[in-house]
Design a protein around this nucleic acid. Sequence first.
RNA 1: GGCGGUGUAGCCAAGUGGUAAGGCAGAGGUCUGCAAAACCUUUAUUCAUCGGUUCAAUUCCGAUCACCGCCUCCA
Length: 465
Amino acid sequence: MLKFFNTLSRQVEEFQPIESGKVRMYICGPTVWNFAHIGNFRTFIFGDVLRRYLKFKGFELTHVMNLTDIDDRIINEAAARNISIDEFTEPFAQYFLEDFDALGNERPEIIPRATHHIAEMIDIISTLLDNGHAYESDGSIYYRITAFPEYGKLSKINFSGNRDGGSERIDTDKYDKEDARDFALWKLVGPDDQPGWDAPFGRGRPGWHIECSAMAMKYLGETFDLHAGGQDLQFPHHENEIAQSEGATGKQFAKYWIHSEFLKIDDVTMSKSKGNFFTFRDLKDQGYSPLAIRYLLLSVPYRKQLNFTFEGLQGAESTTERLRNFRSLVKESSGTGEEKDAVELVMIALKKFETAMDDDMNTAAALAAVHDMVREVNTVIAERSLSNDEKEAVLDAVSQFDAVLGIFGAETSEILDNDIENLIEDRQQARANRDFARSDEIRDLLAEQGIVLEDTKDGVRWKRK
RNA sequence: GGCGGUGUAGCCAAGUGGUAAGGCAGAGGUCUGCAAAACCUUUAUUCAUCGGUUCAAUUCCGAUCACCGCCUCCA
């Protein structure tokens, strides 16, 4: 039975989709104003594992991840470069998707952009103005918090006790708002200012939160199953999305809210504003593999802060290497054995894996099941040949695990060019002649080209480093 | 100031009222011409500290300490 911790109730709840067998899910994507760092990607990898696990459980999925391509930072940066916001955001949108793909994430069904949904935002704002949930002040439109008594139900923020001494940047009254908590839905801009869009309530640009309400409801309906994102979005972003959406429709917006925790580095949150971040590209340039980065980021359950260390990343590198070796070893095994006890091991591992993932996506426990199976099957292989049934069962389990986690890497069935084949052959000859100096020389030569050789009792194996 | 979360071996970490998963790193061994891969053995009398409840607590309660976060742009 699949269970999630729902931020709305602060409890682990059984997951029941609105429509049997189908899941509609929205995950807040990036604001494309810079390269995404690995803390950002922790959330997207979490979202990907969530997506894949829902599919694993047999749900038909509609998954939306937006790209926010308009906000104050974007406007400022574009203005500073004297280019349009599209010219500024487009490269970052592409970089993001490249990195997203490289980290082994499946593309969501729909990846909408905020600037393509201005009309939908205007519709919602109009509705909110009509029903009294929004008001105009100095040409801008604000959400009226007092018209939505449930405000705060997600973040559980006690607004009475947090006025003084807390935030250093409590909104100073640069706008004339009815209530300090009210937030902008639509910001007035001048007739010639860019970017700006005409709306019945005046030319302007959207506030920060309205884009997600608009895109979520457009593609998933007024009420949908799952809404997820980084925990920093819980307040104010998600709280405000709820206020806007439910204020406009009078219906529940999302049934389950799931938030992933931060990634820390040296025990401090990794964030752009603190400057203590690594982008995916930084780590790749240092020679770390996308697979290991992915493994590390998903190895800690999503609700727990993950402390990033290079020691840990190096460990993930070793671990993923071991997983890859394992799959190759099984694939290359002859399947001539008679016994079947490994089939039983595999069944147990699959069961444990599913139980762990059902339990609010406990990836650490799920990985333990994978590793148990790997070790146990390796032990069998060390002793005897796998039978065909065993081989099939193991490979099937690997592909099931990998359908969810994506940590075994791409299956490569490369062929070597003739030169390399010949070198390997020469080396075997040298070894037969006990000319080990020559054989080691060839091994080193191949290593330089990224070909690693392993001598086994069944002959020589090779793999790419 | 209000609210929430963490603290388990060198590192990353799971977990439960009944006596500590898994991975990495380390040590020893098997195999190998040597490696590599793989396997085996080993690595926390102990789960931040101090009390309490209990036959029994790492797990429940209380206090203390340390760290993280939200209340403010941020996945």
